[in-house]
Design a protein around this nucleic acid. Structure first.
Length: 790
DNA sequence: GCCTGAATAGTACCA
DNA sequence: ACTGGTACTATTCAGGCG
C-alpha cells in the first residue's frame, strides 16, 4: 500500500548482519510510524589513477573482501569530480561498519588515487540518495511489518524508496520542553553525588509537571520522568543547553544511581552523543535551543531569560530570579522551596515558548539543507551549507571530496570607503541585493565550472584583477543552488509584507529569511573556508574581485549622475537622496552592471565619524539606527551604551548639542556620587580560547579566573561579566571582579566616568565641538590638570 | 627607573 | 570550524632621558 510520510528522524541499525534504515515520522493520518528499509546497502567510491586498466583494479579490490563482512560488489561507474567526467569504482559493502575498514585497505591498493564518500553517514547517504526532505512529506510504498519493541503506532517495511512530494506543512507535533535543576552543594553540581532535584516539563498537550526528588533522593523522580516521556511520547524534546548540560547530567546520574538506563527513545535506548556536539534520541528530534540562540546576534548574553525576553516569550522583569549558586539553599529551606519550584517551572515554560517559535523555522532549515531536524540547529553555518551542496552534488553525479586539513590561506575581500564625517541630511542607502550569490550565478562561479591553470576551454568568464576563469556552460552547481535559495527567500519576504513589524511573527519570519540570507551569503564564504570539502579558494577570490569591480563601477556611475558618495561598504552606497537622480542611477546600474540594486534605507539625518563601519541615523520612519558604535557593542557597560544611545537621539532628533552635553554631565555627576546601579556597570566579554593560550593579562581573564576559583564552570565561548573596582593595581586587569562577587561600595566609579561614559559620549559629541575636558570635569572641581591633559 | 609611543593582543563589529 | 575589513582598548615592550 501507499502511504504519506513526514520524516522526523532518520537512523539505522544492523540486525543479524543486515543493515536497516529506520525512518521515524508521521503518516497522513497523524499516526507515529516507523518505516524500515531493508534493501539499502552502504557504499563508497574509488577514484583510480588515470589510464589504468579498470578491470584489473576491480579484481585487486575484490580480493580484499573478507568472509564475515564481505564486499558485495565493485562496479565501474561514470561520475564527475570537480565537474570533470571521471570513471570511478563504486564499492558496496554489507554493513556500514565495514566501510571505514575497507576504506583503509583500499586506499593502499596500487592504482587507487583517492577513496571518496567513505565518511558519509549511512542514514545521511540514504536521505541524499533518495532526495528525501527532513521535515517534508513523501509518498512511499509499504507493507505492514510485524516487529515489536518500538514505541510507534505502526511499523512498515519499505517496498520502494520514499518519493519526496512538494508539501512542506508541519503535522501537529507533540512537543515536550524540559529543564532540570540539580543540587549544588559546592559550585557546579556533580552527577556522582548531587541529585537532580527538579525536572520540569511542559507539553503541547497543555500539561505542566514537575518531578521532584525526595529531599536528596532522586531515584524515583528519574524513573517517573522516563515513564512520563514514554507515555507522552513526544516527537520533539526541547531543552536549553540540554546538549551541554541536562542530557549528559541525566545520563550520568542514572548510571551513577545504578538505575536502568535513561530509556526515553522510541526504541527504548538512551540519548546518544552524535555529530556537531548534539545529543540524539532515536525516533524523536532532540533540540537544544541554545544552538538557535547562538544565531541571534542581537542577544549578547545568551541566557534563557534573555532569549525568552527577546523573542517575546516571557518578560525578563516578570521572571522569578534565583542566583544559580543559591539553588541548594532554596531546596533545603522549606519556606523557599516553593519559589525554587516556580523558578524551575518558568524555565521550562520559557523553553517551551522558544521551542514553539523555533521549530517551524528549524523545520524549514532542515528541509532546505537536508539535515535532520535534530542536527540542523546544532550544525554550524559551514556544515549546513555543505549538506546543502552534497544533496545537489548527488543529483549531478558529482563526487563529494574528502575533508582534508589545509593551512589557512587568506585572500582579498571587499572595498570599504572612509565616510565623510559629520551630519548629513536626506540620505539614501542603495545596495546590491544579495551581491555575492548573484555574482556567482551571473558569472557561473563554482568548483565544477572553474578552469584550472593550464586548462583550456572554449567560452568562459574571466574575473577582474585575479584572472580566474569559469566556463559559461554548463551551469555550475552553485549557480542553480543559489537561484533556488534566493527564490525561497523572496517568498518569505512576500509573506512578511502583510505584517506589522511589532508583531512577534514578523520577527520570526524576519529571522527565517535572514537565515536563508545567511545560508546564501555563507555559500560564498564556504568556498574560501579551508575546512570545506568543496574548498576552492579561486572561487571565493573571484567572487570578491567581481564584487570590488561592481561597487567601484557603481560608485563611478553615482558620481556621473551627480550623486555624492558619502560612504560605501562592500555592496552598499550612501548618497544624498535626490529621488530623480537616484532612480536614474539605479536604472543605469541595473542596465550596465546587470545586477539588481535597490534603495535599502532612507535617512532623514545621518551621522558619521571618520571611522568606517560606524554610523547612526534617523530613518524616514522615525526610528534611530545605530551601526557599529559602542551602543551596539556587547563589550561596553549598559550605562555607556545607554548614554551614547541617548546622545545620538538628542543629536539626531533635536540637533541639540547643548542638551546632549547637559545630559551627559548629569550622568557623570550621578556616577561620581555612586548613584549608578551595579548592574549597569557590568562589562561582558567572551572567552575565546583556553586560559593558557592568552598572552596578555586581560581584564575578563582575571575575572574569569576568580570565578573558576569560586567553583564556577567556564568554557570557551562563555561570556564573563565583570566590574572595575577600586584598587592599587597598575593594570585594569588587577582591578576587576566578576560582578556577582562585587559590592557597590568597591566600584571604581571614576573609571566608569572617564573610560566608559566619556569616551562613548565623546565619540559622537567630539564632532560638535565638545571637548573631553568639558565632560570629564562634570561633578568635580575643575583643576588646571584637566586642561593640560590633551 | 620612569615616561612615552609603537607594536601587539584581544574582542566585536559590518558587510 | 563561512569570508575579509575595520575600530578600538589594554597590555607589553623598546628606546630615550636623566
Amino acid at each position: 500500500m501507499k502511504i504519506l510520510f513526514w520524516l522526523l528522524d532518520p537512523s539505522y541499525e544492523v540486525v543479524h548482519g543486515e543493515p536497516q534504515i529506520k525512518l521515524w515520522g508521521i503518516d497522513g493520518e497523524g499516526r507515529r510510524v516507523l518505516l524500515i528499509d531493508h534493501s539499502f546497502k552502504p557504499y563508497f567510491y574509488v577514484l583510480p589513477d588515470p589510464n589504468l586498466a579498470l578491470n584489473e583494479l576491480v579484481e585487486r579490490i575484490k580480493v580484499l573482501s573478507s568472509e564475515d563482512s564481505p564486499i558485495l560488489n565493485v562496479e565501474v561507474v561514470d561520475r564527475r569530480y570537480y565537474g570533470r567526467p571521471v570513471k570511478a569504482l563504486r564499492i558496496t559493502c554489507k554493513v556500514p561498519a565495514s566501510i571505514p575498514v575497507y576504506r583503509e585497505k583500499v586506499a593502499s591498493v596500487l592504482g587507487v588515487r583517492e577513496v571518496l564518500e567513505a565518511d558519509i553517514r549511512f542514514y545521511v547517504r540514504y536521505i541524499i540518495d533518495h532526495q528525501m526532505n527532513p521535515c517534508g512529506w513523501h509518498e512511499v510504498e509499504v507493507e505492514e511489518e510485524d516487529v515489536k519493541g518500538y514505541n510507534v503506532e505502526a511499523v512498515y517495511r519499505v517496498l520502494s524508496p520514499p518519493k519526496p512530494i512538494p508539501k512542506y506543512d508541519l503535522p501537529r507535533l507533540r512537543l515536550l520542553a524540559f529543564d532540570i535543576e540539580c543540587y549544588n552543594s559546592a559550585g557546579t553540581p556533580k552527577p556522582h553525588k548531587d541529585p537532580v532535584i527538579i525536572i520540569s516539563t511542559v507539553t503541547s498537550g497543555g500539561e505542566r509537571k514537575q518531578f521532584l526528588a525526595q529531599d536528596h533522593d532522586d531515584g524515583a523522580a528519574l524513573k517517573d520522568f522516563i515513564r512520563y516521556v514514554q507515555s507522552y511520547d513526544p516527537d520533539v524534546i526541547a531543552g536549553y543547553n540540554s546538549n551541554g548540560f541536562d542530557w549528559p547530567y541525566l545520563i550520568d546520574r542514572v548510571k551513577n544511581l545504578g538505575l536502568a538506563k535513561l530509556a526515553i527513545s522510541r526504541e527504548g535506548s538512551e540519548p546518544q552523543r552524535s555529530t556537531y556536539g548534539h545529543i540524539s534520541i532515536t525516533g524523536r528530534a532532540s533540540i537544544d535551543l541554545l544552538n538557535y540562540a547562538e544565531d541571534l546576534v542581537d542577544v549578547k548574553v545568551k541566557t534563557l531569560d534573555n532569549v525568552a525576553d527577546y523573542l517575546g516569550v516571557m518578560r525578563k522583569d516578570s521572571r522569578t530570579n534565583i542566583d544559580y549558586v543559591d539553588i541548594a539553599k532554596y531546596w533545603d529551606d522549606a519556606e523557599k522551596r516553593g519559589l525554587l519550584l516556580k523558578y524551575a517551572m518558568e524555565d521550562a515554560v520559557s523553553t517551551y515558548g522558544i521551542a514553539e517559535k523555533v521549530i517551524p523555522f528549524a523545520a524549514q532549515l532542515a528541509s532546505i539543507t537536508g539535515m535532520p531536524l535534530d542536527q540542523v540547529l546544532a550544525a554550524s553555518v559551514g556544515f549546513r551549507v555543505e549538506h546543502h551542496i552534497m544533496r545537489n552534488a548527488f543529483l549531478r553525479e558529482e563526487l563529494i571530496p574528502n575533508r582534508v586539513e589545509r593551512p589557512y590561506s587568506p585572500y582579498r575581500g571587499a572595498i570599504v570607503l572612509k565616510p565623510k564625517p559629520g551630519i548629513h541630511e536626506n540620505i539614501a542607502v542603495i545596495d546590491f541585493s544579495a551581491m555575492y550569490p548573484h555574482l556567482m550565478i551571473k558569472y557561473n562561479i563554482g568548483f565544477d565550472s572553474y578552469i584550472r591553470e593550464g586548462e583550456g576551454a572554449s567560452d568562459y568568464y574571466v574575473a577582474p584583477e585575479v584572472g580566474h576563469r569559469f566556463v559559461k556552460d554548463p551551469r555550475s552547481l552553485y549557480g542553480s543552488m543559489l537561484q533556488k535559495l534566493i527564490e525561497a527567500r523572496q517568498h518569505i519576504r512576500e509573506a512578511m509584507k502583510g505584517l506589522n513589524p511589532q508583531d512577534p511573527n514578523y520577527l520570526l519570519l524576519d529571522n527565517r529569511q535572514r537565515a536563508i540570507k545567511v545560508l546564501a551569503n555563507a555559500s560564498y564564504g564556504y568556498l574560501g573556508w579551508v575546512g570545506a570539502r568543496f574548498y576552492v579558494k579561486a572561487c571565493a577570490e573571484a567572487t570578491t574581485a567581481y564584487g570590488r569591480y561592481m561597487i567601484a563601477e557603481a560608485n563611478k556611475l553615482a558620481l556621473s549622475h551627480g550623486l555624492e558618495v558619502i560612504y560605501s561598504d562592500t555592496d552598499s552606497i550612501f548618497v544624498r537622496y535626490d529621488p530623480e537622480k537616484v532612480n536614474r542611477f539605479i536604472r543605469d546600474v541595473e542596465e550596465k552592471l546587470e545586477l539588481e540594486v535597490k534603495i535599502d534605507k532612507l535617512y532623514r539625518v545621518l551621522f558619521f565619524t571618520e571611522a568606517a563601519k560606524k554610523y547612526a541615523g534617523l530613518t524616514n520612519d522615525g526610528l534611530i539606527d545605530v551601526v557599529g558604535f559602542e551602543a551596539v557593542r556587547g563589550d561596553w557597560c549598559a550605562l555607556a551604551q545607554e548614554v551614547q544611545t541617548k546622545v545620538l537621539e538628542i543629536i539626531l532628533r533635536q540637533k541639540n548639542v547643548h542638551g546632549a552635553v547637559n545630559y551627559v554631565k548629569d550622568v557623570i555627576r550621578r556616577i561620581r556620587r555612586g548613584e549608578t546601579p551595579l548592574k549597569e556597570l557590568i562589562i561582558w566579554k567572551t572567552l575565546t580560547r583556553e586560559f593558557e593560550e592568552y598572552e596578555v593579562e586581560a581584564a575578563h581573564i582575571t575575572a574569569a579566573k576568580m570565578l573558576l576559583n569560586a567553583g564556577y564552570k567556564l568554557e570557551v565561548g562563555d561570556k564573563v561579566g565583570y566590574v572595575v573596582v577600586k584598587g592599587k593595581g597598575e593594570r585594569l586587569a588587577d582591578r576587576v571582579k566578576p560582578y556577582i562577587m562585587a559590592k557597590a561600595d568597591e566600584i571604581d566609579y571614576e573609571y566608569y566616568a572617564v573610560k566608559q561614559v566619556v569616551p562613548s559620549a565623546l565619540r559622537i559629541l567630539k564632532y560638535f565641538g565638545v571637548s573631553e575636558g568639558e565632560l570629564v570635569s562634570a561633578g568635580r572641581q575643575a583643576t588646571l590638570f584637566d586642561f593640560s591633559r590633551r
